[in-house]
Simulated scan of single mutants.
Amino acid sequence: MITRADVDAAAIRIGGRVRRTPVLEVADSGATMFKLEQLQHTGTFKARGALNRILAASESGELTGAGVVTASGGNAGIAVAHAAAQLGVPAEIYVPVISSPAKVRRLHELGAVVVQVGNEFAEAYEAARKRVADSGATFCHPYDQPDMAAGAGTLALELWEQTGGFDTVLVAVGGGGLLAGVAAALEGQARTVGVEPTGARALHDALAAGRPVDVPVSGVAADALGARRVGDIAFEVARRTGVRSLLVEDADLIAARRHLWDHYRIVVEHSAAAAMAALTSGAYQPAGGERVAVVLCGANTDPSDLV
């Protein structure tokens, strides 16, 4: 469980180490503003959580000479590799074989040891956990760790300060670290709405079941939103703060990604287009005068199909 206090502490800890990403004011398809977090170090919001996790582990004495290990569809691994390189810590990243070649290439460029195993995130996760048990390395969970989620939530603090406030924020959901951080940061101030592909609906099904449950994973965003089960932190924060989950089809993700390029020359990956897809598909329909923020959370993609 995390609260606003955890997010505030994370903001202090990582201050000066992350980019203060810009906000674009818009009036299109129901959106009022875009938080351009795809411009963050490593191309996603995950740099915030990774830096917060490793710095907090160093402060507490949890960090060992064996370095850090994580499992990822790609983006969390890139973030951990970046944070580890910045802090002089060895990093070993486990990713499924379906991870985008662009993401795997970036991991190598950052100096991480990369291990590709399994066809889904869950298989890479199990291999990473075994490596931690065998090596004594510090585990950086890609989403279900308080420091990871609180670090991600710092973007919501920035967004609120930059805009003077809003009514609703739309956030893509995979394992739920970003959602948990944002919802905790904005609790009592604004609504947080999660958006998931129909082929990776871990939060949606957890809320319906009253507990996290395993779900099948497929679709164009599976490399980034491919968690088989939503994190416990995300589930508890979502239930506490009244988050709801909206579902969009793969075709909606593709169309929203194209819309962002055609209208704004903004390049994002399919997973990051999920929040925008809630608006362009009509899954979320703002009320009159409602101020709606859309978090564009990642851009680690091959843009060749956009031009």
Score class of each variant (00 low, 15 high):
D214V: 15
Q86A: 14
G181L: 08
V95S: 09
P96T: 13
R244N: 11
Q189F: 10
A11Q: 02
S58M: 15
Y125R: 10
E25T: 13
R201E: 13
A57C: 08
V217A: 03
L24E: 11
G67K: 09
Y143C: 03
S218H: 14
L260N: 05
F45Y: 14
A283H: 06
D167T: 07
G61Y: 04
V114R: 07
V68A: 02
V7E: 05
L36N: 09
A83G: 03
R228Q: 15
V115D: 02
N52H: 10
G181Y: 01
P212A: 08
G298K: 05
G199Y: 09
A272C: 06
Y284E: 05
G43V: 06
V97K: 15
E126A: 13
V220G: 09
S245M: 00
I54T: 03
Q162N: 02
E187N: 12
A172F: 07
D252N: 10
Y125M: 10
G282F: 12
R244W: 02
T163I: 01
L159R: 04
Q285H: 14
D28G: 00
A127V: 10
G118D: 12
I233S: 07
Q38Y: 15
E249D: 14
K35P: 01
A209L: 12
E120P: 03
G16D: 08
S281M: 14
A152C: 13
L186Y: 07
K130T: 15
D167R: 06
A208V: 11
G111W: 06
A277P: 01
G177P: 11
L55N: 05
F139K: 01
L36P: 02
A152K: 07
D8M: 09
L55G: 06
V294W: 08
A227G: 12
S218R: 12
K46R: 12
A172N: 04
S29H: 12
L110D: 02
G174P: 04
S218I: 00
A137L: 01
A5K: 13
Y125T: 04
G174W: 00
T280P: 04
L247V: 07
F121M: 09
T198S: 13
A273E: 05
R19L: 15
R211L: 10
L39P: 06
E187D: 15
L110P: 01
A278F: 04
G165T: 05
R106Q: 14
A299S: 14
P142T: 09
T32L: 02
D167Q: 06
A272S: 13
T32D: 08
E126K: 12
Q86T: 02
G282W: 15
A5C: 11
L110G: 01
R211H: 14
P22G: 03
I12V: 15
A172E: 02
R265N: 02
V97S: 13
A27L: 12
M1D: 05
A83I: 03
